[in-house]
Amino acid sequence: METFVQVLLDGMLNGMVYALVAAGLCIIWGVMDVINFAHGEYLMVAMYVSYWLGFLLNVDPLLSVIAAGIFIFILGAMTYQLIIRYTIGKPGLVALLATFGLAIFLKNACMNRFSPNFLILTDTWLSDKTLHMGNLIFPVPQLVAGLLSLVVVGMIYALINTTRFGWAIQATAMDRDAAELMGINTDRIYLVVFGIGGACVGIAGGIMPSYLAVHPEVGSMFGLIAFVCVAMGGFGSIPGAFIAGILVGSVEALAGFYIAPVFKYIAVFGLYLTVVFLRPKGIFGW
């Protein structure tokens, strides 16, 4: 029983990080109907921001999350302003291919600038720290990342559901033309939404160098899992993406431990296919 709880706990903590990455993708997808293929690469860039702040200025990743979040907010806003804006109203494939190109650009730019070497931050405030509760081990970096995820996702949920700006976002997502007729500057909404989506993944990436090596490929798998979480949770549903993230993390860990480690991604994608087959709009889809 103890082992089960430990494995589940590890899975849930990882799942909460998936949820934060997915929340960013979810808000962009839900509001703008744009699939941001560069989402995993945003995570990678945020990790580099956090790493270099730590390496050069001795700023701990726990503080760098703010800088990483702001940096990727700006990157997201720029992506909208320079690329996505021109794809609105065109077939969905155009935006998809544009962000795919951006992903390749970001990955290769980082590879060119920082080399493919793995960069590890040691001696951070959180690195290698664990909390023990009986025989249960709580890895502190993942625990903090999970709590951070909970706070950020909660804040975004509150922003969207309790503020005038959030209602404007919802209105824009439901019917852009009607929202414009009501006086909402949808172009600005899109810009900020892309920025917020980026900030979510930026915060996740900012904390990760506490426990994960940074390299140009690091975002790929996270990006893929974020897509699964968003599709499974329901396009545009922040609580859906959050719950799906935790579900994915838990299934991954339990299947990896109780069936076979190599089976963990099979279980995750199997679960995804099952959910999408039974409920194509996802668990909490609009």
Binding site: T3, G11, Y18, G256, P261, K264
Partner: peptide, 15 residues
């Protein structure tokens, strides 16, 4: 066995 490039190796190390 594990998939190269995995996001974590928790279940592998638990095993």
């Amino acid at each position: 066995p594990f998939s190269p490039g995995a996001t974590n190796l928790n279940s592998e190390v638990q095993t």
